[in-house]
Design a protein around this nucleic acid. Structure first.
Length: 875
RNA sequence: GGGAGCAUAGCUCAGCUGGUUUAGAGCACCUGCCUUACAAGCAGGGGGUCACAAGUUCGAAUCUUGUUGUUCCCACCA
């Protein structure tokens, strides 16, 4: 059989993914087994795969594939999120490119375009996930605006409204003047910007020439000022109590108020108050019953109320107002200033605080039990440091603004009546029925009801995701939700802990009385190796599909995971994928080697092979224990590294070299079958990490049936009965002897093809272990001697002297130097041990076994020193 | 401004309730090898006063306190 020397992943990966789909191996239905479910954090329907998704979904796939092989009925539910702001913005831009303005469209027309756009471009990301090997049950693919999911969202809204948890009210909200919608506090990102601080003086009313100077970063809002505020204990302004000032340009008389909110040290200690356009000013306005003058239109231009610069954009107005202030003699000075400005996360537009009528969800009652389940570890966070962050937010939770002034999303099921009242109901018919009963005097027609124009915040559907994908909101007693809920593990990023994780917990407890997941694994941010976030502007974000093309999906999966402890950032470097690819190739070649051997059934199994098999099985078993422990703690990188070393070092470098038959010689059947068994188990162990190559090689190892897959095999399990400490330690000693012989060969330039003799200063040895030394080291003879050997390279293992005689060629000086170094080391070591042992307090105070250990160290070191000194003397 | 985390080899990280030699891994690096599975490889090697200081202890990378540096979260002083 011809097998290429280099592994070519492309064909293999496509072949097996198609095979898995064809045989429906990702599909799951409730049955008698224990469930293991994961719901995908739904990516934006318009999104394309980036490195963050790669990491996140690799982790999910590993957990799901492993669970399947551990005998769970595992399901991974895929889907996408409608992402109202992001998607609507994309559709608006798309239409603009075609010369269509959203404002010229009706809601229905726009939504028709949006759906068309979604059908055409949406869900690309799910196709891309297949390249990664994601074992999602694709038949279950959900979209947050699917009819049944939407129905659930509306049900929840109506229910919370009826419970009094949802209310409508005027509040200061974060307004995005580009998207023309309110956004939640969590969707605002603050950035430091270089700006200016303007000092402006206001004339004191009824005074000759008295002024008060304030400092502001937003002079254009002067047009909406309705007060000046100072600290009540500020000596400089005491005399102004009870007076009024004149706002420049508009010449409005406003009161001077005093409140402790003002920071005396900042600026002049006097603050202009614009209740309509600043959250703090708004609070002052409420407290002192100030007039509120809204000078902005929704798109951020100045309106009639401003009187001046009407129609101008807020940033233009900020410049244009300067000459007006100068003209009025009000501008005192301008300073450079660095301040923080809030931007909309989605549109990157500067947020404008705005008073508006919005819908809110009261969080207090929902938050309480949700905090508790995390604090008492009903839900476990990995790493658990995020409990702090979570607790802090939950304890200070504020009401959630859930309305968005958009069209793409779940429309709020509130229906307004001609008398300005409204009713909340699942649909217009129900609303009509309620309204008729409530207001018989209105003689209502159904056409009198006008539905609220706003849609719900995207997270108001996402928070139901672990329930809604199993239709558990609409239909809470169905078999699926009862079987799969709660899900096993949520894999997500810490930056959406409040947006999403916290709210899913609230919704789960509210609607099922049960947590939505047992564990939450927080992955880190994927950054480049210079610790910068991946971004389009920097161009430091590699295209995942190109990486897969270059290194294979298995290689990339490994690359993602090689350095990614939970909660730590992943510093991505293509070199990691290269390492993954190299590992694929290593496995591939191990396979080539094994498959290249001829098997001779008549041969006896040699001693060294029997021993090697015994050793590897034990080693494998030890590794299983370690790996199981790592998985329990979600230390996936460590689990992977354990498998990696088991495969590369123990299996390839040691085991295969030990059992490898001489060139063009056949191997005995017993050993061969053991090797195939071992290889088989290694593939199973590796499969969750590298699904493709393991499936390929698993099929290559033995004749498999047409429908067989490694996915359906049982994961090997740690067996405590198999471990034999004594054997492993004797084997380890032998390995160290082998390494020492190699070191001598390397240092003395003795080629592997030249056989050497090994003399051991010891009455007798372990012939079994010796058989391996013969096999690995090209040793012509191992002699047990009672005399030290002259003219030989020497080394010491476990205080036994070994000699490799080499005639006259020994450079005594060099050997002596080496021995001196070793001696020096041993003496220093002995000193440190003696320091401890000569300390009476240590000998009396420390536990016996620790002291005994130190005494053992002492005698070992003394013995070694004695041997070294003898050797030196002989030289 | 408030809070949390981190600081161990060139890089990324392990190191569990203090004691298994004088602190480990992977990558990178250096030396020698195209040896018959793999140069995407093999064999060998070098590299760290565990951020700093003090304390607790017979004993500290590990516990306490302080200092410095760094990251993240929350708040949002015009």
């Amino acid at each position: 059989m011809e097998i290429a020397t280099q592994y070519q992943p492309q064909d293999v990966e496509n072949k097996w993914y198609a095979f898995w789909l064809e045989h429906n191996l990702f599909a799951s239905k409730p049955d008698g087994r224990k469930p293991f479910s994961i719901v995908i954090p739904p990516p934006n329907v318009t999104g394309v795969l980036h490195m963050g998704h790669m990491l996140n979904n690799t982790i999910q796939d590993i957990l799901v594939r492993r669970a399947r092989m551990l005998g769970f009925n595992a399901v991974w539910v895929p889907g996408t999120d409608h992402a109202s702001i992001a998607t609507e913005a994309k559709v608006v831009n798309f239409l603009k490119e075609q010369g269509i303005d959203k404002r010229d469209l009706t809601r229905e027309e726009f939504l028709k375009y949006a759906w068309e756009w979604k059908e055409k471009y949406g869900g690309i990301i799910l196709k891309q996930l297949r390249k990664l090997g994601a074992s999602c049950d694709w038949n279950r693919t959900k979209f947050t605006m699917d009819p049944e999911l939407s129905e659930g969202v509306i049900d929840v809204f109506v229910d919370l409204y009826n419970k009094g948890k949802i209310y409508r009210g005027v509040r200061m909200v974060n307004w995005d003047p580009k998207a023309l919608t309110a956004v939640s506090d969590e969707e605002v990102v603050y950035q430091e910007v270089q700006s200016k601080l303007y000092y402006v003086r206001y004339k004191i009313e009824d005074s000759d020439n008295e002024y008060i100077t304030i400092a502001t970063t937003r002079p254009e809002t002067i047009l909406g000022d309705t007060a000046i505020c100072m600290h009540p204990e500020d000596e400089r302004y005491m005399h102004l109590k009870g007076k009024r000032a004149i706002v420049p340009i508009v010449n409005r008389s406003v009161p001077l108020i005093f409140d402790e909110y003002v920071e005396r040290e900042f600026g002049t200690g006097a603050l202009k108050v614009t209740p309509a356009h600043d959250i703090n000013d708004y609070n002052l306005g409420q407290k002192y019953k100030l007039q509120t003058i809204n000078i902005f239109n929704d798109n951020g231009t100045l309106n009639e109320a401003a009187q001046f610069l009407v129609g101008m954009d807020r940033f233009e107005a900020r410049k244009a107002i300067i000459p007006l202030l100068e003209e009025a003699g009000a501008l005192v000075k301008i300073e450079d200033y660095v301040n923080k400005v809030g931007y909309s996360e989605r549109t990157h537009e500067v947020i404008e605080p705005k008073l508006s009528m919005q819908w809110f969800c009261n969080m207090e009652a929902l938050a309480k039990p949700a905090l508790e389940v995390v604090m008492n570890d009903t839900i476990k966070f990995y790493p658990d440091k995020f409990k702090n962050t979570y607790a802090h937010w939950m304890e200070n939770v504020k009401d959630w603004c859930i309305s968005r002034q958009l069209w793409w999303g779940h429309r709020i099921p509130a229906y307004y009546l001609p008398n300005n009242e409204f009713v909340v109901a699942k649909n217009i018919e129900e609303a009509f029925a309620i309204a008729k009963e409530k207001y018989p005097e209105l003689n209502l027609q159904i056409s009198d009801l006008k539905q609220d124009e706003d849609v719900l915040d995207t997270w108001f559907s996402s928070w139901l995701w672990p329930m809604s994908v199993f239709d558990g909101v609409r239909n809470p007693d169905n078999e699926e939700i009862k079987y799969y809920y709660p899900t096993a593990t949520l894999i997500t990023a810490p930056d959406i802990i409040f947006f999403w994780v916290a709210r899913m917990i609230m919704a789960g407890l509210e609607y099922r009385g049960e947590v939505p997941f047992r564990h939450v694994y927080f992955k880190g941010t994927v950054r480049d190796k210079l610790h910068r976030k991946m971004s389009k502007q920097l161009g430091n974000s590699p295209d995942p599909l190109m990486l897969i093309d270059k290194f294979g999906a298995d290689g990339v999966r490994l690359g993602m995971l090689l350095s990614s402890p939970a909660g730590n950032d992943l510093l991505f470097d293509e070199a990691l994928c290269e390492q993954g690819r190299n590992f694929s190739n290593k496995i591939w070649n191990a396979f080539r080697l094994v498959k290249g051997w001829a098997v001779d059934g008549s041969l006896e199994q040699p001693e060294h092979c029997a021993l090697a098999v015994k050793w590897f099985k034990m080693k494998f078993n030890e590794a299983l224990k370690e790996i199981e422990d790592h998985f329990l703690k979600y230390r996936l990188s460590d689990a992977l590294m354990t498998v990696y070393k088991l495969m590369w070092d123990d299996f390839c470098s040691w085991f295969l070299e030990m059992v490898k038959p001489a060139y063009q010689h056949p191997i005995d059947a017993k050993t061969y079958n053991d090797i195939i068994d071992i290889f088989d188990n290694l593939m199973k162990l590796l499969h969750p990490f590298m699904p493709f190559i393991t499936e390929e090689l698993w099929h290559g190892l033995r004749d498999r049936g047409e429908n067989e897959s490694i996915m359906l095999q049982t994961m090997p399990k740690y067996d405590p009965a198999l471990s034999d400490e004594d054997f492993l330690s004797r084997f380890g000693e032998m390995q160290r002897v082998v390494e020492s012989i190699r070191r001598v060969r390397s240092e003395k330039n003795i080629a592997q093809k030249n056989p050497v003799e090994l003399c051991v200063l010891k009455p007798q040895g372990d012939s079994k272990m010796d058989s391996i030394i013969y096999k690995l080291c090209n040793v012509s003879e191992i002699k047990y001697v009672s005399e030290k050997q002259p003219q030989a390279f020497t080394f010491i293992e476990q205080n036994i002297e070994y000699f490799i005689p080499f005639g006259q060629n020994v450079n005594t000086e060099e050997e002596a130097d080496k021995l001196k170094k070793e001696l020096e080391y041993a003496e220093k070591f002995l000193q440190s041990v003696m320091k401890k042992l000569s300390n009476e307090k240590f000998v009396n105070g420390a536990p016996e076994n620790i002291v005994a250990l130190e005494r053992k160290k002492q005698s070992d070191a003394e013995e070694k020193i004695r041997i070294l000194k003898e050797q030196l003397a002989r030289l």
